[in-house]
Design a protein around this nucleic acid. Structure first.
Length: 274
DNA sequence: CCCTGCCTGCTG
DNA sequence: CAGCAGGCAGGG
């Protein structure tokens, strides 16, 4: 579910709450969420370790431990992370609880159970999580129109599908690909190899602009995050096209249209987006 | 390259 | 009740 701005929010909210705390005990009710190593090895290796900080890479969260190992997690569609006091009501579908040494519980819940955890030991190569296949962050100095065009300019597939390719540019999912293309005034179904120089420039400019705009719009206090169960902050009124099929375009008033591209639902303005 | 599977819950 | 949901890996 969450894309780069949401993962960034989780990092910003949860990170400071768990930094410096030691994992005293793990309750794992769904061992299949541990992708590597085995669930038993994961629990044994992580128990007693101290958390140094939380970081983000693409849509992955990385929990860095003081012994230089790291827990990597991907929330996929419905994964959710909460730092809660022990008496806080338990979310349905909570599959793992890390009890920390100040009593805080780091809880992972996931209705659809697509989310996964990996533990990468100090010195071990991460060939498991998929982080190795990622390329540029949208805020990387090297990310620009030339980079995008060089990577995607010869592809025949829809530009919308290309934007979802994490091996080119990370962090964009179905919602923000639609928002970005709307802002760049490009139709999602346009073959990537049909984009003009000017369109590549607009697209490359809108990607970091749009994502950082939503990171700002998602800013939330830990209390508010907990109250909204780590979900509600995303119900943003700031999305211009996603979820607005049939409504008037905010620029021109034309009715927004829904199509399916690469198996994903896509909303765009038939007048503004060429 | 397209298609499916992985899951549960919500909507029409 | 079918269809769909913000992700991704794996198979043909």
């Amino acid at each position: 579910m969450p894309e780069l701005p949401e993962i960034e929010t989780i990092k910003n909210v949860i990170g400071p709450q768990i930094k410096g705390l030691t994992i005293e005990q793990i309750t794992l009710s769904r061992p299949e969420i541990i992708a590597h190593p085995t669930a038993d090895e994961f629990c044994a290796a992580v128990t007693g370790q101290t958390i140094s900080f939380l970081s983000r890479r693409g849509k992955f969260l990385i929990l860095h431990l003081k012994n230089d190992s790291r827990i990597i997690l991907h929330l996929r569609m419905t994964g959710c992370l909460l730092a809660a006091p022990p008496d806080h009501p338990m979310e349905k579908h909570t599959h793992m609880i890390l009890r920390l040494d100040n009593g805080t519980e780091l809880r992972f819940s996931d209705t659809r159970r697509f989310g996964r955890f990996w533990l990468i030991q100090n010195g071990e190569e991460d060939t498991y999580s998929g982080i190795g296949k990622l390329d540029l962050e949208p805020f990387d100095q090297k990310f620009d129109a030339e980079y995008l065009q060089d990577k995607l300019g010869r592809r025949k597939k829809a530009i919308k599908e290309c934007l979802l390719d994490q091996s080119v540019i990370v962090g964009i999912g179905n919602i923000y690909s639609d928002e970005i293309l709307f802002r760049a005034k490009i139709r999602p179904a346009r073959p990537a190899n049909s984009l003009t120089e000017e369109e590549w420039r607009r697209l490359a400019a809108e990607i970091p602009k749009c994502l950082s705009y939503f990171i700002e719009k998602n800013r939330i206090s830990p209390e508010e995050y907990l109250r909204g169960k780590g979900q509600d902050y995303r119900n943003t009124p700031f999305l211009l096209v996603y979820g607005h099929t049939g409504e008037p375009c905010r620029n021109c008033g034309a009715a927004l249209v829904r199509t399916v591209i690469g198996g994903r639902s896509s909303v765009y303005c038939p007048a503004c987006q060429k």
